[in-house]
Amino acid sequence: MLDFAEQPHKRKNLLTGEYILVSPHRSKRPWQGQVEDLAPDNRPEYDPKCYLCPGNSRADGTQNPPYKDSFVFVNDFSALLEDTPTGQFNEENLLVAESERGICKVISFSPRHDLTLPEMEVDAIKAVVDLWQQEFETLAANEWIKYIQIFENKGSIMGCSNPHPHGQIWAESSLPVEIEKESAQQKTYFEQHGRTLLQDYVALELKKNERIIVDNAHFVALVPFWAAWPYETMIVSKRPVSTIQGFTEEEKADLARTLKELTTRYDNIFKTSFPYSAGMHQAPVNTGEHPEWHWHMHFYPPLLRSATVKKFMVGYEMLATPQRDITPEQAANTLKQQSTIHYKG
Protein backbone atom coordinates (compact mmCIF):
# COMPACT_ATOMS: atom_id res chain seq x y z
CA MET A 1 0.00 0.00 0.00
CA LEU A 2 1.40 3.37 -1.04
CA ASP A 3 1.95 5.98 1.64
CA PHE A 4 1.03 9.11 -0.31
CA ALA A 5 2.32 11.39 2.46
CA GLU A 6 5.83 9.88 2.62
CA GLN A 7 6.76 7.82 -0.45
CA PRO A 8 7.64 9.04 -3.96
CA HIS A 9 5.00 7.96 -6.44
CA LYS A 10 3.45 8.77 -9.80
CA ARG A 11 -0.15 9.85 -10.34
CA LYS A 12 -2.06 9.66 -13.61
CA ASN A 13 -3.81 12.70 -15.02
CA LEU A 14 -7.12 11.26 -16.21
CA LEU A 15 -7.72 14.16 -18.59
CA THR A 16 -4.44 13.86 -20.51
CA GLY A 17 -3.26 10.32 -19.82
CA GLU A 18 0.08 11.71 -18.63
CA TYR A 19 1.77 11.18 -15.27
CA ILE A 20 3.18 13.48 -12.59
CA LEU A 21 5.86 12.59 -10.04
CA VAL A 22 4.98 13.34 -6.40
CA SER A 23 7.90 13.53 -3.93
CA PRO A 24 6.37 14.37 -0.53
CA HIS A 25 9.58 13.72 1.44
CA ARG A 26 11.26 16.64 -0.40
CA SER A 27 9.00 19.18 1.30
CA LYS A 28 11.11 18.68 4.44
CA ARG A 29 14.30 19.98 2.83
CA PRO A 30 15.53 23.49 3.73
CA TRP A 31 14.50 26.10 1.18
CA GLN A 32 17.10 28.38 -0.39
CA GLY A 33 15.25 29.16 -3.59
CA GLN A 34 14.40 32.47 -5.17
CA VAL A 35 12.55 35.05 -3.09
CA GLU A 36 11.39 38.34 -4.59
CA ASP A 37 10.02 41.54 -3.10
CA LEU A 38 6.35 42.15 -3.78
CA ALA A 39 5.36 45.44 -5.32
CA PRO A 40 2.77 47.20 -3.15
CA ASP A 41 -0.77 46.67 -4.42
CA ASN A 42 -2.08 50.21 -4.15
CA ARG A 43 -3.99 50.59 -7.39
CA PRO A 44 -6.54 53.40 -7.60
CA GLU A 45 -10.20 52.80 -8.50
CA TYR A 46 -9.53 54.61 -11.78
CA ASP A 47 -6.25 55.04 -13.65
CA PRO A 48 -6.25 57.67 -16.42
CA LYS A 49 -3.33 55.86 -18.12
CA CYS A 50 -5.01 52.42 -18.15
CA TYR A 51 -6.34 51.31 -21.55
CA LEU A 52 -9.02 49.14 -19.86
CA CYS A 53 -10.60 51.77 -17.62
CA PRO A 54 -13.93 53.29 -18.74
CA GLY A 55 -13.67 56.26 -21.08
CA ASN A 56 -9.94 55.86 -21.72
CA SER A 57 -8.34 55.48 -25.15
CA ARG A 58 -6.65 52.25 -26.20
CA ALA A 59 -3.51 51.77 -28.30
CA ASP A 60 -5.36 52.06 -31.61
CA GLY A 61 -7.17 55.25 -30.53
CA THR A 62 -10.51 53.57 -29.79
CA GLN A 63 -12.22 55.06 -26.76
CA ASN A 64 -13.76 52.71 -24.20
CA PRO A 65 -17.42 53.34 -23.39
CA PRO A 66 -18.36 54.41 -19.85
CA TYR A 67 -19.20 50.79 -19.00
CA LYS A 68 -20.73 49.89 -15.62
CA ASP A 69 -20.27 46.09 -15.44
CA SER A 70 -17.91 44.04 -17.62
CA PHE A 71 -16.71 45.06 -21.07
CA VAL A 72 -15.39 43.09 -24.07
CA PHE A 73 -13.51 44.12 -27.22
CA VAL A 74 -11.23 42.62 -29.88
CA ASN A 75 -7.63 42.62 -28.64
CA ASP A 76 -5.66 45.47 -30.18
CA PHE A 77 -2.63 43.13 -30.34
CA SER A 78 -4.31 39.83 -31.20
CA ALA A 79 -2.19 36.67 -31.39
CA LEU A 80 -4.64 35.32 -33.99
CA LEU A 81 -6.17 37.27 -36.88
CA GLU A 82 -9.54 36.69 -38.52
CA ASP A 83 -8.37 37.57 -42.03
CA THR A 84 -5.34 35.25 -42.11
CA PRO A 85 -5.25 33.53 -45.53
CA THR A 86 -5.17 29.74 -45.77
CA GLY A 87 -1.68 28.38 -46.36
CA GLN A 88 0.46 25.31 -45.79
CA PHE A 89 4.16 24.48 -45.85
CA ASN A 90 5.70 21.02 -45.97
CA GLU A 91 9.27 20.17 -46.88
CA GLU A 92 9.93 16.41 -46.90
CA ASN A 93 7.57 16.00 -43.92
CA LEU A 94 10.34 17.47 -41.77
CA LEU A 95 9.50 21.17 -41.91
CA VAL A 96 5.73 21.42 -41.52
CA ALA A 97 3.54 24.46 -40.91
CA GLU A 98 0.06 25.75 -41.68
CA SER A 99 -1.82 28.98 -41.18
CA GLU A 100 -4.05 29.52 -38.16
CA ARG A 101 -7.03 31.84 -38.17
CA GLY A 102 -8.75 33.24 -35.10
CA ILE A 103 -10.32 36.02 -33.07
CA CYS A 104 -8.85 37.26 -29.78
CA LYS A 105 -10.94 39.28 -27.34
CA VAL A 106 -10.28 40.98 -24.01
CA ILE A 107 -12.82 41.10 -21.17
CA SER A 108 -12.47 43.75 -18.50
CA PHE A 109 -14.13 42.20 -15.45
CA SER A 110 -15.11 45.49 -13.82
CA PRO A 111 -14.85 49.24 -14.42
CA ARG A 112 -12.91 49.33 -11.12
CA HIS A 113 -9.16 49.29 -11.75
CA ASP A 114 -8.50 47.96 -8.25
CA LEU A 115 -10.89 44.99 -7.99
CA THR A 116 -9.91 41.38 -8.72
CA LEU A 117 -12.48 38.56 -8.91
CA PRO A 118 -12.34 37.70 -5.18
CA GLU A 119 -12.89 41.36 -4.32
CA MET A 120 -15.95 41.73 -6.56
CA GLU A 121 -19.53 41.14 -5.45
CA VAL A 122 -21.12 37.87 -6.57
CA ASP A 123 -23.59 39.74 -8.80
CA ALA A 124 -20.70 41.46 -10.58
CA ILE A 125 -18.95 38.12 -11.13
CA LYS A 126 -22.24 36.73 -12.45
CA ALA A 127 -22.20 39.53 -15.04
CA VAL A 128 -18.77 38.29 -16.16
CA VAL A 129 -20.11 34.72 -16.43
CA ASP A 130 -23.05 36.02 -18.47
CA LEU A 131 -20.65 37.80 -20.81
CA TRP A 132 -18.51 34.66 -21.15
CA GLN A 133 -21.60 32.76 -22.21
CA GLN A 134 -22.74 35.46 -24.63
CA GLU A 135 -19.32 35.70 -26.26
CA PHE A 136 -19.09 31.92 -26.56
CA GLU A 137 -22.43 31.83 -28.41
CA THR A 138 -21.46 34.73 -30.67
CA LEU A 139 -18.07 33.27 -31.58
CA ALA A 140 -19.43 29.74 -32.06
CA ALA A 141 -21.81 31.12 -34.72
CA ASN A 142 -18.76 31.41 -37.01
CA GLU A 143 -18.64 27.99 -38.69
CA TRP A 144 -14.88 28.16 -39.26
CA ILE A 145 -14.17 28.41 -35.52
CA LYS A 146 -13.46 25.02 -33.93
CA TYR A 147 -12.48 25.92 -30.38
CA ILE A 148 -13.05 28.78 -27.93
CA GLN A 149 -10.61 29.24 -25.06
CA ILE A 150 -11.73 31.46 -22.18
CA PHE A 151 -8.92 32.25 -19.72
CA GLU A 152 -7.36 34.69 -17.26
CA ASN A 153 -3.74 35.46 -16.39
CA LYS A 154 -3.71 37.10 -12.98
CA GLY A 155 -0.61 38.90 -11.78
CA SER A 156 2.52 40.18 -13.48
CA ILE A 157 4.46 36.98 -12.75
CA MET A 158 1.93 35.15 -14.93
CA GLY A 159 2.59 37.50 -17.82
CA CYS A 160 -0.34 39.83 -17.21
CA SER A 161 0.55 43.07 -19.01
CA ASN A 162 -2.10 45.29 -17.39
CA PRO A 163 -3.02 45.28 -13.67
CA HIS A 164 -6.67 46.13 -14.43
CA PRO A 165 -8.42 42.77 -13.76
CA HIS A 166 -9.32 41.18 -17.06
CA GLY A 167 -9.43 37.93 -19.00
CA GLN A 168 -9.24 36.83 -22.60
CA ILE A 169 -11.07 34.73 -25.17
CA TRP A 170 -9.25 33.16 -28.09
CA ALA A 171 -11.35 31.48 -30.77
CA GLU A 172 -9.43 29.55 -33.41
CA SER A 173 -9.77 27.42 -36.50
CA SER A 174 -8.24 24.24 -35.06
CA LEU A 175 -8.03 22.38 -31.75
CA PRO A 176 -5.26 23.32 -29.28
CA VAL A 177 -2.88 20.58 -28.09
CA GLU A 178 -4.32 20.25 -24.57
CA ILE A 179 -7.86 20.02 -25.92
CA GLU A 180 -6.87 17.23 -28.28
CA LYS A 181 -5.44 15.29 -25.32
CA GLU A 182 -8.52 15.81 -23.14
CA SER A 183 -10.87 15.03 -26.02
CA ALA A 184 -9.21 11.66 -26.59
CA GLN A 185 -9.27 10.67 -22.92
CA GLN A 186 -12.89 11.71 -22.37
CA LYS A 187 -14.12 10.06 -25.56
CA THR A 188 -12.49 6.74 -24.69
CA TYR A 189 -14.04 6.77 -21.22
CA PHE A 190 -17.50 7.74 -22.47
CA GLU A 191 -17.49 5.00 -25.10
CA GLN A 192 -16.58 2.44 -22.45
CA HIS A 193 -18.92 3.58 -19.66
CA GLY A 194 -21.69 5.67 -21.21
CA ARG A 195 -20.94 8.43 -18.67
CA THR A 196 -18.50 11.33 -18.72
CA LEU A 197 -15.11 10.78 -17.13
CA LEU A 198 -15.49 13.82 -14.87
CA GLN A 199 -18.99 12.77 -13.82
CA ASP A 200 -17.58 9.61 -12.27
CA TYR A 201 -14.41 11.31 -11.03
CA VAL A 202 -16.35 14.01 -9.17
CA ALA A 203 -18.65 11.39 -7.64
CA LEU A 204 -15.59 9.55 -6.28
CA GLU A 205 -13.99 12.75 -4.99
CA LEU A 206 -17.21 13.73 -3.20
CA LYS A 207 -17.37 10.27 -1.63
CA LYS A 208 -13.77 10.44 -0.38
CA ASN A 209 -13.93 14.16 0.55
CA GLU A 210 -10.15 14.47 0.76
CA ARG A 211 -9.53 17.13 -1.90
CA ILE A 212 -12.89 18.98 -2.10
CA ILE A 213 -12.65 22.75 -1.49
CA VAL A 214 -16.10 24.03 -2.55
CA ASP A 215 -19.28 21.95 -2.84
CA ASN A 216 -22.57 23.62 -3.76
CA ALA A 217 -25.68 22.69 -5.72
CA HIS A 218 -24.12 22.86 -9.18
CA PHE A 219 -20.31 22.90 -8.89
CA VAL A 220 -17.36 21.50 -7.00
CA ALA A 221 -13.91 23.01 -6.70
CA LEU A 222 -11.19 20.53 -5.81
CA VAL A 223 -7.48 19.87 -5.93
CA PRO A 224 -7.12 17.21 -8.64
CA PHE A 225 -5.56 13.92 -7.53
CA TRP A 226 -2.95 14.50 -10.27
CA ALA A 227 -2.33 18.24 -9.61
CA ALA A 228 1.11 19.44 -10.79
CA TRP A 229 1.17 23.00 -9.42
CA PRO A 230 1.36 23.52 -5.61
CA TYR A 231 -2.18 24.85 -5.17
CA GLU A 232 -3.66 23.77 -8.48
CA THR A 233 -7.45 23.41 -8.47
CA MET A 234 -10.25 22.56 -10.85
CA ILE A 235 -13.89 23.66 -10.90
CA VAL A 236 -16.23 21.05 -12.39
CA SER A 237 -19.95 21.28 -13.09
CA LYS A 238 -21.96 18.56 -11.35
CA ARG A 239 -24.23 18.26 -14.37
CA PRO A 240 -22.31 16.93 -17.41
CA VAL A 241 -22.61 20.06 -19.55
CA SER A 242 -20.29 20.16 -22.57
CA THR A 243 -19.84 23.96 -22.84
CA ILE A 244 -20.67 27.13 -20.94
CA GLN A 245 -23.44 27.66 -23.48
CA GLY A 246 -25.51 25.00 -21.70
CA PHE A 247 -25.49 26.56 -18.22
CA THR A 248 -28.79 27.70 -16.73
CA GLU A 249 -29.22 30.95 -14.79
CA GLU A 250 -29.01 29.01 -11.52
CA GLU A 251 -25.81 27.30 -12.63
CA LYS A 252 -24.23 30.58 -13.70
CA ALA A 253 -25.06 32.13 -10.33
CA ASP A 254 -23.49 29.14 -8.56
CA LEU A 255 -20.41 29.39 -10.79
CA ALA A 256 -20.03 33.04 -9.76
CA ARG A 257 -20.24 32.05 -6.08
CA THR A 258 -17.74 29.24 -6.63
CA LEU A 259 -15.28 31.57 -8.34
CA LYS A 260 -15.50 34.10 -5.53
CA GLU A 261 -15.05 31.53 -2.78
CA LEU A 262 -12.15 29.72 -4.43
CA THR A 263 -10.22 32.87 -5.38
CA THR A 264 -10.84 34.37 -1.92
CA ARG A 265 -9.32 31.27 -0.34
CA TYR A 266 -6.35 31.66 -2.67
CA ASP A 267 -5.74 35.26 -1.59
CA ASN A 268 -6.03 34.30 2.07
CA ILE A 269 -3.28 31.63 1.96
CA PHE A 270 -0.41 34.14 1.88
CA LYS A 271 -2.42 37.34 2.42
CA THR A 272 -1.65 38.55 -1.08
CA SER A 273 -3.39 38.91 -4.43
CA PHE A 274 -2.74 35.30 -5.48
CA PRO A 275 -1.45 35.00 -9.07
CA TYR A 276 -2.58 32.22 -11.39
CA SER A 277 -3.42 31.24 -14.93
CA ALA A 278 -6.96 29.90 -15.16
CA GLY A 279 -9.10 28.75 -18.03
CA MET A 280 -12.11 26.73 -19.05
CA HIS A 281 -11.87 23.49 -20.98
CA GLN A 282 -14.98 22.62 -22.92
CA ALA A 283 -16.14 20.88 -26.06
CA PRO A 284 -15.01 21.96 -29.54
CA VAL A 285 -17.60 23.79 -31.63
CA ASN A 286 -18.84 23.24 -35.18
CA THR A 287 -17.48 19.68 -35.13
CA GLY A 288 -20.59 17.67 -34.31
CA GLU A 289 -21.92 16.50 -30.96
CA HIS A 290 -19.56 15.82 -28.06
CA PRO A 291 -21.48 14.01 -25.29
CA GLU A 292 -18.16 12.89 -23.81
CA TRP A 293 -17.10 16.43 -22.97
CA HIS A 294 -17.68 17.73 -19.43
CA TRP A 295 -17.07 21.44 -18.74
CA HIS A 296 -14.34 22.26 -16.22
CA MET A 297 -12.03 25.12 -15.33
CA HIS A 298 -8.35 24.78 -14.39
CA PHE A 299 -6.44 27.05 -12.00
CA TYR A 300 -2.64 26.93 -12.15
CA PRO A 301 -1.07 29.18 -9.45
CA PRO A 302 2.74 29.29 -9.06
CA LEU A 303 3.10 30.31 -5.40
CA LEU A 304 4.63 27.64 -3.18
CA ARG A 305 5.71 28.70 0.31
CA SER A 306 4.90 32.40 0.58
CA ALA A 307 3.77 35.42 -1.39
CA THR A 308 7.23 35.59 -2.96
CA VAL A 309 8.33 31.96 -3.31
CA LYS A 310 7.29 30.47 -6.63
CA LYS A 311 7.25 26.99 -8.07
CA PHE A 312 9.29 26.75 -11.28
CA MET A 313 9.00 24.00 -13.87
CA VAL A 314 12.70 23.41 -14.55
CA GLY A 315 15.25 20.67 -15.13
CA TYR A 316 13.60 17.29 -14.73
CA GLU A 317 10.14 18.82 -15.12
CA MET A 318 10.97 20.47 -18.44
CA LEU A 319 12.90 17.49 -19.75
CA ALA A 320 11.03 14.52 -18.28
CA THR A 321 7.91 14.67 -16.08
CA PRO A 322 6.17 17.36 -13.97
CA GLN A 323 7.00 16.94 -10.27
CA ARG A 324 5.66 18.33 -6.99
CA ASP A 325 6.69 18.13 -3.34
CA ILE A 326 3.62 18.97 -1.25
CA THR A 327 0.88 16.43 -1.97
CA PRO A 328 -2.51 17.42 -3.44
CA GLU A 329 -4.07 16.37 -0.12
CA GLN A 330 -1.83 18.78 1.82
CA ALA A 331 -2.68 21.58 -0.61
CA ALA A 332 -6.40 20.84 -0.32
CA ASN A 333 -6.18 20.93 3.47
CA THR A 334 -4.46 24.33 3.34
CA LEU A 335 -7.15 25.71 1.03
CA LYS A 336 -9.97 24.30 3.16
CA GLN A 337 -8.58 26.02 6.24
CA GLN A 338 -8.76 29.47 4.60
CA SER A 339 -11.57 31.87 5.38
CA THR A 340 -14.11 32.77 2.70
CA ILE A 341 -13.95 36.37 3.94
CA HIS A 342 -11.35 38.25 1.93
CA TYR A 343 -8.35 39.55 3.87
CA LYS A 344 -7.85 43.31 3.96
CA GLY A 345 -4.62 43.96 2.08
Results as ranks from 00 to 15, higher is better:
residue 13 N to I: 04
residue 21 L to W: 14
residue 28 K to L: 07
residue 28 K to M: 06
residue 36 E to R: 02
residue 37 D to C: 03
residue 38 L to F: 14
residue 44 P to Y: 14
residue 49 K to I: 01
residue 51 Y to A: 00
residue 57 S to V: 14
residue 69 D to H: 15
residue 75 N to I: 14
residue 77 F to Q: 02
residue 80 L to A: 04
residue 81 L to S: 13
residue 85 P to I: 01
residue 95 L to N: 09
residue 99 S to F: 08
residue 99 S to Q: 07
residue 101 R to E: 00
residue 107 I to S: 05
residue 109 F to V: 06
residue 118 P to A: 07
residue 119 E to D: 12
residue 120 M to K: 13
residue 122 V to N: 04
residue 124 A to Y: 07
residue 125 I to P: 03
residue 133 Q to N: 05
residue 134 Q to F: 07
residue 140 A to I: 02
residue 145 I to Q: 04
residue 153 N to C: 07
residue 155 G to P: 04
residue 168 Q to G: 08
residue 169 I to E: 07
residue 173 S to A: 07
residue 182 E to A: 04
residue 190 F to R: 00
residue 195 R to C: 05
residue 197 L to V: 06
residue 204 L to S: 15
residue 209 N to L: 09
residue 209 N to D: 15
residue 220 V to C: 04
residue 220 V to R: 06
residue 226 W to C: 01
residue 234 M to I: 11
residue 258 T to F: 05
residue 260 K to C: 15
residue 272 T to L: 06
residue 274 F to L: 00
residue 278 A to G: 13
residue 287 T to H: 03
residue 294 H to S: 06
residue 301 P to E: 08
residue 305 R to E: 08
residue 307 A to G: 14
residue 309 V to M: 11
residue 313 M to F: 15
residue 322 P to C: 15
residue 326 I to S: 01
residue 326 I to Q: 03
residue 341 I to G: 10
